[in-house]
Simulated scan of single mutants.
Amino acid sequence: MPRLELLQFLRRVQEQQLQQTDRWIAQEEQRAAEQVRAERLQPPRDPGWCVSYGIGADRSRWRSTSATAAWQSTRSQ
């Protein structure tokens, strides 16, 4: 096979590989855009704490949400 034909064949193969690579890049870009969109649509995350204001020393303090149940149980007693 002459050298020119081999080079033309090589060019066709490389073009096919480049097209495949472009498709992979487009798929990854689409996945990344979908991920960003999904993150924007999610409700805001619970910060894990809250501030409670009120009258008296025991009412004016912050507490973690994990401690909320314990705090509420001591208040109901």
Rank of each mutant, 00 (worst) to 15 (best):
P43V: 04
R23I: 15
R37P: 01
R3V: 10
A33G: 04
E29S: 00
S76R: 12
P47N: 03
Q14C: 12
Y53M: 14
W24Q: 07
I25Q: 02
P2R: 04
R75Y: 02
R40K: 06
D22E: 14
Y53Q: 14
G48P: 00
T74M: 08
D46C: 06
A38Y: 06
E15I: 03
R11T: 04
V51Q: 12
P2V: 00
L7E: 15
Q16I: 03
W49D: 03
W62K: 01
S64R: 08
A38F: 02
E15S: 08
L4E: 15
R37L: 05
Y53C: 14
P44W: 03
W24G: 01
Q72R: 07
V36L: 02
I25L: 13
M1V: 09
E28W: 10
E34L: 03
L41P: 00
S66A: 11
Q30D: 05
A33I: 06
A57L: 10
L10E: 14
C50D: 01
D58V: 03
E29V: 01
Q72I: 11
D22C: 10
I25V: 13
P47A: 00
W71R: 04
A57S: 13
E34H: 02
C50W: 10
D46F: 15
A70W: 01
A67I: 04
S60M: 15
P47H: 03
T21I: 11
L41Q: 05
R40G: 04
S64Q: 10
I25R: 00
M1I: 08
W24Y: 10
P44H: 04
S52L: 14
L4C: 08
T65H: 14
T21D: 10
M1N: 13
D22H: 08
Q77E: 14
W71Q: 02
P43A: 04
R63T: 02
G56V: 04
V51F: 12
W71A: 01
A67K: 04
Q16W: 08
L7A: 09
W24N: 05
A67H: 09
S64E: 11
A57G: 09
S60E: 13
E15R: 08
A67G: 13
P47V: 06
R59V: 04
E39V: 03
Q17D: 09
L7R: 09
A69C: 07
L10S: 13
G56F: 01
E15F: 11
D46S: 05
Q16A: 11
R40P: 02
Q72F: 11
G56W: 01
R63M: 09
P47S: 05
C50N: 00
E29P: 00
Q20L: 14
I55C: 08
M1C: 13
E39Q: 14
D22N: 12
E5D: 14
Q30K: 00
L6I: 06
S76V: 12
L6T: 11
E15H: 07
R3T: 15
L6C: 10
A57T: 12
A26E: 00
R3N: 15
P2H: 00
S52V: 15
Q27C: 08
R40V: 05
L4D: 15
W71G: 00
G54P: 04
W49E: 01
R59T: 08
E39Y: 10
R61D: 01
L6G: 14
A67V: 03
E5A: 12
A26Y: 02
W71K: 03
E15N: 09
L4Q: 14
E28I: 10
S52N: 06
S66D: 15
A67N: 09
R31T: 07
R61N: 06
A67D: 15
T65S: 09
A33H: 02
A38K: 05
E34I: 00
F9S: 13
